[in-house]
Computed example of a mutant assay.
Amino acid sequence: MKKSILVLLVAAFSLTTLFQSCNEKIEKKTVSNEIAEAEASSNSTIDEKSQDPQQLTITNMHDAYKGETTAHFKYAAYSKKAAEEGHPEIALLFKAASGAKLIHANNHKVVLLRMGESIPEITPEFSVNTTAENLKEAIEGESYEFNTMYPNFIKDANAVGNYMAQISLTYAYKVEQKHRDFYIEALKALEAGTDNTLATVYYLCPTCGNTYATVAPARCEISMTDSKLFIKVTSS
């Protein structure tokens, strides 16, 4: 009889312990679920905000404006470095590209103003190395803009039907490929010691920044701007 009572007491204690353990696990799971749901809700809100097409285009235009403004000053510095190292033709190329970048930045600025945005003060951040290293950096930067950045920005602008943003971004996108190819050619010439054979004059379309070496067509192949309006870039 005593043995049976002892067995019952042990069983009761085990069940009580089991119930307590289960309750603690359920409470912990409930709290964890609540935290997870709260985090998911927060992330969902953040994602919804970040995916707002109109706001995304505004952010893109600010990024594009900052990038082009920085590149304008950076290429001007690269031009000075190339001249100091005795590569006047490469210095001229960077000078022309710097001018084109300023045209792109101004186009982006107009779009931002039309969208009611204020234009921030840009403090360019970059480093100047050897001419060869500067060319490699420029190739990498232009390749990223042409292959990744501008295609994505254009897609976002298309999604909200922002026609002016589409035009400004497309102008820059089409010119970046030409700049990349100019830089690739210049780097090969520099490494071969034949950079003195590169172009000694460039022409810039004032509308889109399209850049032509040595000669230019009657009209810009991107914006159809008359070549009479082109900006001539020389070493003088």
Results as ranks from 00 to 15, higher is better:
M1R: 07
M1Y: 05
K2R: 10
K3E: 12
I5Q: 13
V7I: 14
L8T: 13
L8R: 11
L9V: 14
A11W: 06
T17N: 08
L18K: 04
C22P: 00
C22H: 06
E24Q: 08
I26T: 07
K28Y: 09
K29Q: 07
K29F: 07
K29V: 04
V31Y: 12
N33K: 11
N33M: 11
A36C: 09
S42N: 15
T45E: 15
E48D: 14
K49W: 08
S50T: 11
P53Y: 10
Q54T: 11
T57A: 13
T59Y: 08
N60C: 11
N60W: 11
M61D: 01
M61T: 04
M61Q: 06
H62G: 10
H62W: 10
H62P: 08
Y65D: 00
G67R: 05
G67M: 10
E68Q: 14
A71H: 02
A71G: 10
F73P: 01
Y75D: 01
A76F: 01
A76K: 07
A77K: 03
S79R: 01
K81R: 14
A83R: 03
E84T: 06
E85D: 06
E85Q: 05
E85W: 03
G86V: 02
G86D: 00
E89A: 13
I90W: 00
A91I: 01
A91C: 06
A91D: 01
A91M: 03
L92M: 02
L93S: 01
A96T: 05
S98Y: 03
I103N: 05
H104T: 03
H104E: 03
H104V: 02
N107V: 03
H108N: 12
K109Q: 11
V111D: 00
L112C: 02
R114E: 15
S118W: 07
P120G: 05
E121R: 08
E121W: 06
I122C: 04
T123A: 09
V128N: 00
V128E: 00
N129E: 13
T130G: 04
T130K: 07
E133Q: 09
L135E: 00
K136M: 10
E137R: 05
E140V: 09
G141L: 09
G141M: 10
S143P: 02
S143H: 09
E145M: 09
F146G: 07
Y150M: 10
Y150W: 09
N152V: 10
N152I: 10
I154G: 10
D156T: 10
N158L: 13
A159T: 13
A159G: 08
V160E: 08
N162T: 08
I167E: 13
S168Q: 11
S168M: 07
Y171V: 05
Y171G: 09
Y173H: 15
K174Q: 15
R180V: 06
R180F: 08
D181P: 05
I184T: 12
A186P: 00
L187E: 01
L187C: 05
A189G: 03
L190M: 06
L190Y: 01
E191Q: 15
A192T: 08
G193M: 09
T194H: 05
N196H: 08
T197G: 03
A199W: 01
V201R: 05
L204D: 00
C205L: 12
C205P: 04
P206F: 03
C208L: 09
G209R: 07
G209F: 00
G209D: 08
G209I: 07
A213Q: 08
V215Y: 12
P217Q: 07
A218K: 14
E221K: 14
I222F: 12
M224K: 15
S227N: 12
L229F: 13
K232Q: 12
V233I: 15
T234G: 09
